[in-house]
Simulated assay, not measured.
Amino acid sequence: MRMKRTDRKKPKRLWLKVPLIIILLLALGGGSYAFFVYNNAKQTVNDKMHEPVESIDDEVVKGKTKAQEPLNILLLGIDARSSESGRSDALMILSLNPKNDSMQLISIPRDTRTQIVGKGFEDKINHAYAFGGTGMSIASVENFLDIELDYYVRMNMDGLEELVNELGTITVNNEIAWNDGKYDFDLGPVEMDGDKTMHFVRMRKQDPNGDFGRTTRQRQVVEGIVKRGASIGSITKIDSMIDILGNNMATSMDFDDMKKLLSGYKDTRKNFISYQMTGKGTTIDGIYYLVVPEEEIEKVNGMIGEMNL
């Protein structure tokens, strides 16, 4: 049986939240320079990044973070350089459970065919953003999985490149070897700067798993950024990283929300679970879709439900 939604005011509906929390953690522990960084972070978050949406009831969510209850966060990666610039290139659900210090990251393939809430027809789930922005994406994901989302984080993929460059490099464990004409990606640990990271996450045609392999690499990059951000050695980098995020990221969290996540949820990364939704590719009216069976939807609903216990 699917997890049931709790009652809340209608309408019911980090990429990179975690790196920002790490930045705040470092800023709060860095002495007098950190005081400047802290104030800059607060202003950047509240003035440039905070974008509330009607589909999320802020008061209900603030009550959950105050009580340190489990949270579900929609991560949207937007590829601004694409000819389909209004569509989300990556969709992930990040679930945080501070009761057992666990974090779960589930990828939804962008070609997944589902009902687009507010439009009344089925289409690729990543088209929801083009039709109605973040609010329609949230509503469509909630309807698809029959879950409730507490926050969203939207990241411009170009900002991801800048962020990795500011960190220096990240390292991932590459599962297939390939060369894209510019970079060699060998099996095993691969160290990457920002440009190489973008080549890593965007490759699809040479991957035997197609978009499934691509979303796996997206999750690997998120993990790589978290690990690198947690071990960053110089506090002088933090201010520039905040500026990068401020120019490329939007979220329903305000600065106080992030502080609560910092204090109550920072240990969830100790136990990291990663999962990729699966389905069967099919062509309808000449357009490729991924049709996810009901059994898979029920499974993912249950996984998220268990994280919310």
Rank of each mutant, 00 (worst) to 15 (best):
S107L: 00
G168H: 11
V164M: 07
L149D: 02
V61M: 06
N72C: 08
I147L: 03
L167N: 02
L76V: 04
I147G: 04
I93H: 10
G63W: 04
S137T: 14
V141N: 01
S102L: 08
A128W: 00
V164T: 05
L91E: 05
A130E: 13
L105V: 13
I106D: 02
I56R: 06
D89V: 04
P109I: 03
Q104G: 14
I93A: 11
K64Y: 11
Y151P: 01
I170E: 09
K62H: 11
R110N: 09
D158K: 13
Y152P: 11
Y151R: 07
L96K: 06
G77L: 01
E54V: 02
G133S: 06
H127P: 03
Y129A: 02
I176V: 13
N156D: 14
R154H: 08
K99P: 12
R81S: 14
E161R: 13
A67E: 15
N174A: 12
D101G: 06
L149W: 07
G118Q: 03
S88K: 03
D89G: 01
P98S: 11
D111F: 02
L163F: 15
I56C: 04
R110D: 10
D158T: 15
V153W: 09
N100M: 10
G135L: 00
V153A: 15
S82L: 09
L163S: 11
T171Y: 10
S102M: 05
D79R: 01
L105P: 04
R154S: 15
I106E: 02
H127C: 02
A177I: 03
N72H: 12
K64I: 11
N126C: 10
I106R: 09
N143V: 09
I147N: 02
L96R: 04
G132C: 03
P109W: 05
L96A: 11
K124I: 07
Y129C: 01
G132Q: 04
P70K: 08
Q104F: 15
N156I: 08
I176L: 13
V53Q: 05
V164K: 08
T65M: 14
E148V: 06
F144P: 01
R87K: 14
I147F: 01
I73L: 05
I56E: 02
A139Y: 00
A90V: 12
A67R: 12
D123T: 05
P98I: 10
I108P: 03
T169N: 14
